[in-house]
Design a protein around this nucleic acid. Sequence first.
DNA 1: CTCGCACATGTGAGCGCTCTCCAACAATCC
DNA 2: GGATTGTTGGAGAGCGCTCACATGTGCGAG
Lengths: 344, 344
Amino acid sequence: MAGGSGSGNGRRRSPSMADVAALAGVSHQTVSRVLNDSPLVREDTRERVHAAIVELGYRRNAAARLLATNRSGRIGMVSAHLALHGPSMIAGAVQEAGREAGYDVSVVGVLQLSEEALRNAVDRLLDQAVEAIVVAVAHRDAHHLVRSLSLPIPVVLAQGVEPGEAMAAGIDQVAGARLATDHLLDAGHRSVAHVSGPTDWTEAAQRCEGWRRAHEARGLLPGPEVPGDWSASSGYDAGRRIAQDLSVTAVFVANDAMALGVLKALHEAGRDVPGDVSVVGFDDIPESDFYFPSLTTVAQDFLDLGRRAVELTVRALSGEERPTVELAEPVLLVRSSTGPAPAG
Amino acid sequence: MAGGSGSGNGRRRSPSMADVAALAGVSHQTVSRVLNDSPLVREDTRERVHAAIVELGYRRNAAARLLATNRSGRIGMVSAHLALHGPSMIAGAVQEAGREAGYDVSVVGVLQLSEEALRNAVDRLLDQAVEAIVVAVAHRDAHHLVRSLSLPIPVVLAQGVEPGEAMAAGIDQVAGARLATDHLLDAGHRSVAHVSGPTDWTEAAQRCEGWRRAHEARGLLPGPEVPGDWSASSGYDAGRRIAQDLSVTAVFVANDAMALGVLKALHEAGRDVPGDVSVVGFDDIPESDFYFPSLTTVAQDFLDLGRRAVELTVRALSGEERPTVELAEPVLLVRSSTGPAPAG
DNA sequence: CTCGCACATGTGAGCGCTCTCCAACAATCC
DNA sequence: GGATTGTTGGAGAGCGCTCACATGTGCGAG
């Protein structure tokens, strides 16, 4: 036991605060103060410490800091279908907005939607000691789970929320759908068909609701509703069914990808867009301007949504009880896939 | 100061190992053993501990564990343009493959590509104590940065790599481009035009290279090259220029989104696809089957790529010096946007 | 009946940081 | 000139875990 206490330890440990302190000729506490921008350090001391930090390539150990402070500076986010336009935009926006607010954002994607998968995702985030969780899964089950889950940290919902709901940010899907449907009805169409998203997705349900209400408000009966699954392929199938019904002169499709399929099916069936049939999409993906014809669609400001979600998070974190933000309003982009109802 | 030492401390701390140990009537070490599946625990003790864990809702503190072990079980990933199909698929695949291999994956997206932004991203990952980093930015600068950066942890490249490169997984872009170009040349076209991606992206450069070589191999001169930026909009601009040149009968477009733009421009110029002009894309995004006409394109197995990248990471982590995997081969999907060269 | 050896469990140090206290010293006041 | 500030610095505990070790059993062998 005497003598050589194992010094030559193969892999060199990274420098610690003590090493920096020793090199700068101060105590570890002073180094800590410098790192945390405390004003209680003389300028030349601060510089000496900084020099030591650079020389050693010191980097503060986040785990130790977290252990001591119990604050991770990290927000978790759970998302599904990250390959889809909306979810991926929201994830990017939350990450960006979080960063602006001084938080790191960890995104965990759920592949198969199930209660277990969601719980799992939340568990993984909890393991990372996140201070709050943003759930951006606009699925009914997710909504329920979030509300039932009683976590010691704030959980905010992004997307698929109801107006006035606390701890929830969103874009008014019902309003967006009404915008789209009203545009068609205003153009003289007697009714509008709808290609919907999967019904267990709250957004799909809300868009459907808006479409229905737009008709109701005018005392009209809505056209046929054909279910899809967000994919272009399902839109194509729906489009083929719609093309057979010659009384349909206008279609509101729940997202742009499906609208692409609808457009193709209509085209193949020899029905002209917008001459015979008008089509409106939802999402304004960058490609939709280059469809044939370029697609009238509803645009949502995802970046703003991300910012609102983070704003809620920050407010909740700073003690506010059940912070609320208003739903954002989507915008209709009129392009060339819509026109007046055909005469007759 | 006597008496009531602040016991009613508002926010209750989450239970620690010691709490579990006390409840189960064992020492904290035994709890640790149970948590780490040590065989040195009697069955009934193990059950008692488990019961205590459940009762208390105990969850192991990852920061403390990391501090003690110096192993985070986390892999970092830096990605850019997560809204694009390829990058987003790769991110998902790496996350999934990492999870299978027992690692958590942290993705940090870079918005503006710059050396500083990349360094920043790496810094953020380092702060999370990742054990390795996967860089999935197929940009020349990223490639350089990664090779110059000398980190104490393994860094593997995914996408935009050269054959035989160590610590790098990829899909052979040159081969993919040759596949596409040869398909057109085989169909009798005398030369093929190319709408390329931004030239500082290695993938764009490699696809361009494959297109060039395919001509070379037959002693042909390549058609005009028009630069794009991956967006449908830039593809549209390129398509308009190409449509003016009546000698062009075939176009290889560096990705599907730009191909959509090309298709539209060609259509507007009255040039029939594939009657007058054949078009091939790259990526096989789910929508490309529903373009007008449905797009012949090159498909890449991103999931496999993710798995290979993680495989490299794991091998490097387990001490292998400079592990290598082979480039994967992409596949040509022939659909209806390509046909024989027009007579004349 | 002691020894030894497997197994099962407990003890204590230390990971790198932040926090709460306390010490040293200069400048200021009555 | 001694008490009173304010400024700058240091010492030490403790966050919750894992590690290396010490300890306490039971049981067959010498």
